[in-house]
Amino acid sequence: MAAAAAAGAGPEMVRGQVFDVGPRYTNLSYIGEGAYGMVCSAYDNVNKVRVAIKKISPFEHQTYCQRTLREIKILLRFRHENIIGINDIIRAPTIEQMKDVYIVQDLMETDLYKLLKTQHLSNDHICYFLYQILRGLKYIHSANVLHRDLKPSNLLLNTTCDLKICDFGLARVADPDHDHTGFLTEYVATRWYRAPEIMLNSKGYTKSIDIWSVGCILAEMLSNRPIFPGKHYLDQLNHILGILGSPSQEDLNCIINLKARNYLLSLPHKNKVPWNRLFPNADSKALDLLDKMLTFNPHKRIEVEQALAHPYLEQYYDPSDEPIAEAPFKFDMELDDLPKEKLKELIFEETARFQPGYRS
């Protein structure tokens, strides 16, 4: 834990890192770190609560700039109880001085990944967590956004079992017609939660990839272990087919990539493993919904509104309290091709509203 900075004593240090967030945020305490930044909790002297502050230093890398800009653009436009918001952003007053960006968010005690390492969940908890994931996802999908990296560590939890989806750095506007060349190379989302079509096709992607990830998360809540822990690309596919069985001819016809289709045709026939054999203690309604989410063919996979209306979630289902976005989200430009200098300018502009004396 960093010592509390005395008023006016300059930035606090946390594990050798400068955290320049005073005077409003003090009493910093280390939480963890990701690929390009550290997260601390801090005391907000204005709202009198502890908050989470993520320090991001992305400006050396085009990919990190892209992810940072995506996350900020999306989260500043989203407003939903099951999606983490941005409360404040701290950065230098000029673009030349801006080396880091500090993002202030609600402090959540833990995440689903940490929880599943230590606790076996009751059916009631599984049901409530799944409902909140789908409630947040309904809003995301209504904005025409794909999260693309749903996994237990991106689901934040607090002691009252509130759940918030975080990390929109890989999110995209849904565009089933656009052929994202190089899709697989830039697709760094965790393999275990990846839909089979991501490994088999490169053309376009749809909201059904997020539903697949939610199915993987439900299976993990039922058993405290990942359902498809593939060691590499082909191993991942083999794990999936080992449980779902061989795809039907109709399902194979959806695979545009001939090499991928021929690979699947070359494999020995596998039978589907019954879900109640894998999860003998699970609620039968939970397994019915799991089956509809972990469907090989993305066109037959359940959609988020149908999933919310499934009998497993009937005690929570309330369409009048499951809000959607006001308007579909649009990125003005494809960020993939922009140089990091341009992305830095866009991050600077996007964060201006939090600067003292800002006038829109």
Rank of each mutant, 00 (worst) to 15 (best):
A3L: 08
E12P: 15
R15H: 13
Q17S: 13
V18D: 00
V18Q: 09
F19Q: 07
V21A: 07
R24F: 14
T26A: 09
L28H: 11
L28G: 10
Y30H: 13
E33A: 10
M38C: 12
S41R: 13
S41N: 11
Y43N: 00
D44Q: 11
N45R: 12
K48T: 08
R50M: 01
I53W: 08
S57M: 07
P58F: 15
F59T: 15
E60W: 13
Q62G: 08
Q62F: 06
Q66L: 00
R67K: 01
I72Q: 04
I74R: 02
L75T: 15
R77M: 13
I84Q: 07
G85R: 15
G85H: 14
N87A: 14
I89M: 12
I89Y: 10
R91S: 00
A92G: 15
T94H: 09
E96A: 08
I103Y: 08
L107K: 12
Y113W: 08
Y113H: 08
Y113R: 05
Y113M: 09
K114M: 05
L116K: 12
D124G: 11
D124W: 12
D124N: 00
D124K: 11
H125R: 00
H125K: 05
Y128M: 04
Y131L: 11
Y131R: 14
L134P: 02
K138T: 10
H141N: 00
H141C: 09
S142P: 07
N144S: 04
V145Q: 06
L150G: 05
K151C: 02
S153E: 11
N154D: 04
L155Q: 00
T159G: 09
K164T: 10
K164I: 00
I165R: 04
D167V: 00
G169Q: 05
L170C: 08
A174S: 01
P176C: 04
D179S: 12
L184D: 01
V188T: 07
A189P: 03
I198P: 08
M199G: 03
I209P: 03
D210P: 05
D210E: 03
I211M: 07
I211S: 04
S213R: 00
G215P: 01
C216Y: 01
C216V: 07
I217E: 02
E220T: 03
M221H: 03
L222Q: 01
S223W: 06
G230N: 12
K231M: 01
K231S: 11
K231V: 14
Y233E: 03
Q249H: 01
E250K: 05
D251T: 11
N253L: 06
C254F: 01
L258T: 10
R261V: 06
L264A: 12
L267C: 09
L267H: 13
P268A: 10
H269Y: 08
N271V: 11
K272C: 07
F279Q: 09
P280A: 09
P280C: 06
S284H: 12
S284C: 10
K285H: 10
A286W: 12
D291E: 04
K292E: 09
L294K: 05
N297F: 07
P298H: 00
R301W: 06
E305M: 14
E314L: 14
D318H: 10
D318Y: 01
P319D: 10
D321W: 13
D321C: 12
F331G: 14
D332P: 14
E334G: 10
L335P: 10
D336C: 13
L338T: 08
L338I: 08
P339E: 04
P339H: 10
K340L: 08
K342D: 13
E345N: 07
E345F: 15
E345I: 15
L346G: 07
I347V: 10
E349Q: 13
E349V: 03
E350M: 14
T351S: 00
A352L: 13
Q355M: 06
Y358E: 06
R359V: 08
